[in-house]
């Protein structure tokens, strides 16, 4: 299977499953609102009857925000704390949702029960993998950080040279990031397909698969990861052009924002679908090749044995 095939086939599958993305979106938005709604309440209470809030309508006046957080400094620490909790929960939720998505994709049919069954049955399988992948990410982030420290400590002629070095470090980090992500995704497929719990074994099995089909797997992920960036660009352009300086504009942007969020999650489904297609086809192909090879070896072995037996009979 070539790259465009995987890309298009994944798109077609994801296209048939908009409700899957919607379900995941609903779960995410519910979680996000747990922090956004209290924040909204705090803003309303914090500003009270003050007219200063009006200055935030036409642009983000840093001075007004500064004064607000100075007067309500406890809020900032409260919400940063809460945000950390939410991120922790979303980390776990991500494992849960990924399990559901993969189940729906393997069955190629969306039902709520199908999603939650997949989410539940795959959860503990993916949890170990999630921890392992996160540790790998932390290791790579630390490496990138160390490289960045080196970049700043090493002599440079001018900042252009410095910028280039920073881009190289970030580029290398991104390359590894994509690689880990890609391997992690295939490991999930293998674990789900074989109903295996051994995350290390499956991770290294996935790694073998990725390296064997490196160009296809790597660039498929790159092509897919590029799409959310385009969506982000369009969203920011919309927001900038429409502006957030009136209630009508805010309502318009609210709806555009929700579409953007839904798309972001749908893109994830697309990524999974394309990768799963690639994996299935290449895996079957590999299996065919492998079984053909094994069959030949067996055939040769039997042929040799028969020859040997004939020889023995002759003697």
């Amino acid at each position: 299977m070539n790259l465009p095939d995987a890309y298009v086939r994944g798109f077609k599958i994801a296209f048939r499953l908009p409700r899957l993305a919607f379900l995941a979106y609903t779960i995410f938005i519910a979680l996000a609102l747990l922090i956004v709604l209290p924040f909204h309440g705090s803003l309303t209470n914090g500003f009270g009857q003050s007219g200063e809030i009006r200055k935030l309508l036409t642009s983000i006046d840093i001075s007004v925000l500064f004064q607000f957080f100075k007067n309500n400094d406890i809020l900032l620490s409260y919400f940063s704390h809460q945000l950390l909790w939410i991120l922790g929960i979303s980390w776990i939720l991500g494992i849960f949702i990924n399990g559901g998505i993969i189940r729906v994709l393997t069955k190629q049919r969306f039902t709520v029960s199908n999603f939650f069954t997949g989410a539940a049955t795959n959860f503990f399988r993916f949890l170990g993998l999630g921890i392992f992948t996160t540790i790998l990410h932390i290791v790579f982030i630390l490496c990138a950080f160390a490289a960045m420290v080196l970049v700043f400590e090493t002599e440079f002629t001018n900042e252009i040279e410095l910028y280039n070095r920073i881009f190289i470090v970030l580029g290398v980090y991104f390359a590894f990031f994509v690689l880990i992500q890609s391997i992690s995704d295939y490991a999930k497929f293998i674990m789900a397909l074989y109903q295996s719990n051994n995350c290390f074994k499956r991770f290294f099995q996935a790694m073998r698969f990725v390296f064997k089909h490196f160009l296809k797997t790597y660039f498929l992920y790159l092509m897919l990861v590029f799409v959310p960036f385009i969506a982000l660009y369009f969203y920011i352009t919309f927001q900038r052009d429409i502006g957030l300086s009136s209630m009508t504009a805010i309502i318009a942007i609210f709806f555009i924002q929700q579409i953007y969020f839904w798309l972001r999650i749908w893109f994830r489904v697309w990524i999974f679908a394309s990768q799963l297609e690639l994996y299935t086809v290449e895996y079957i192909h590999d299996e065919k090749v492998r079984s053909e090879k094994e069959r030949r070896i067996e055939w040769d072995r039997k042929a040799k044995q028969m020859e040997k037996e004939i020889e023995e009979k002759k003697q």
Binding site: F28, I29, L31, A32, L33, I35, V36, L37, F39, H40, L43, T44, F47, I53, L56, L57, L83, I86, L87, S90, W91, L93, G94, I95, I97, N98, F126, L129, G130, T133, T134, H137, Q181, S184, L244, M247, I250, I253, F254, Q257, F261, R264, I265, R268
Partner: peptide
């Protein structure tokens, strides 16, 4: 207020999506 809440929602949702995509 809605404007600020909308911006914070955008920030938090993106952070959550990026965070979960790591898995």
């Amino acid at each position: 207020f809605y404007k600020l809440s909308l911006i914070s929602l955008f920030f938090i949702m993106n952070l959550m999506i990026i965070f979960t995509a790591l898995l």
